[in-house]
Design a protein around this nucleic acid. Structure first.
Ligand SMILES: [Zn+2]
Ligand SMILES: [Zn+2]
Ligand SMILES: [Zn+2]
Ligand SMILES: [Zn+2]
Lengths: 139, 139
DNA sequence: CTTGACCCTATACTTGGTATAGAGTTTACA
DNA sequence: TGTAAACTCTATACCAAGTATAGGGTCAAG
């Protein structure tokens, strides 16, 4: 199977597949005489696994950890669970931050119910004055 | 005031200040004989405004829109309000996506309560099998 | 035998900055 | 006055997670 077929089957772009190879999530495939990548069904499964992880918003690094753990089937899955737990916490943290921003924004927005002039706009005045702001998300 | 003092007063890094200048959020300041940037208190206020907007997770583009509107005080603030409303919707959308991911992750994680071997791990089996996944966030 | 559909590598672009390198400038202190 | 520290300048590279090109090579059909 060449990369175009793999792209169609997985729904991932050709560039994304090559990108995952560069990032070592996917091992480099055999090449044809003309230097084309030639994939087996193992690569297809691997890519679908990666796609699932990305759909869960896991980072490349997190996926890499899970894939490494998955590679030796007799090991304990404790590390996988730790990675997933951390990722769940990552998302929870981000949700909390966004909710805090949301409530600040909504209260700010409520200070201008009827459109008026810029110089009298409550929203802009609040943007000038709000003192304690929520921290921006920093990884 | 030189850039270092401005950085201290605003709490923004020197590079961030120059970055905002490149992005035209902050107009290019006067220069001293030796080509050092020389700022007035107007720039300080402008930067604090930008900082507030970033703390609310607004994009550079959104901030740019608000700053343009703010520049002519007799205009209506309708555009500012539209920008803020859109941004509130942006955040709500992202929160919804993350919550959906969260519940998928938690249900997945619950399929491995006691650490076992990789090949028997419910989490990994689910990662292989989950079919309908939430869409990844695409701006 | 040439056109179109593939594939290859390498590079630039995105966002919101951060972190250098290598150079010039100003300030403090002896 | 000398010099060393602290400051500033531009330009460039880097981060995530890819996308989008340019400029080439390869393969099948008509
Ligand atoms: Zn994570
Ligand atoms: Zn208003
Ligand atoms: Zn927004
Ligand atoms: Zn397990």
């Amino acid at each position: 199977m060449k990369i175009g077929a793999l792209s169609t089957k997985t729904g991932l772009s050709i560039q994304a597949i090559r990108f995952y190879e560069r990032k070592a999530l996917l091992s480099a495939p055999e090449r044809t005489q003309s230097n084309y990548r030639s994939y087996s069904d193992v690569a297809l499964k691997q890519l679908m696994f990666i796609k699932q992880c990305r759909a869960l918003d896991m980072t490349i690094e997190e996926i890499s950890l899970v894939l490494q753990a998955r590679a030796n089937p007799d090991n304990s899955c404790a590390e996988v669970n730790a990675t997933i737990d951390k990722h769940i916490a990552d998302i929870e943290h981000r949700v909390d931050e966004l909710k805090a921003l949301q409530s600040t924004l909504i209260s700010m927005r409520s200070s201008c119910t009827i459109d008026t002039k810029i110089k009298e706009c409550g929203v802009l005045h609040k943007l000038d004055n709000i003192v304690e702001m929520q921290a921006t998300y920093k990884k």
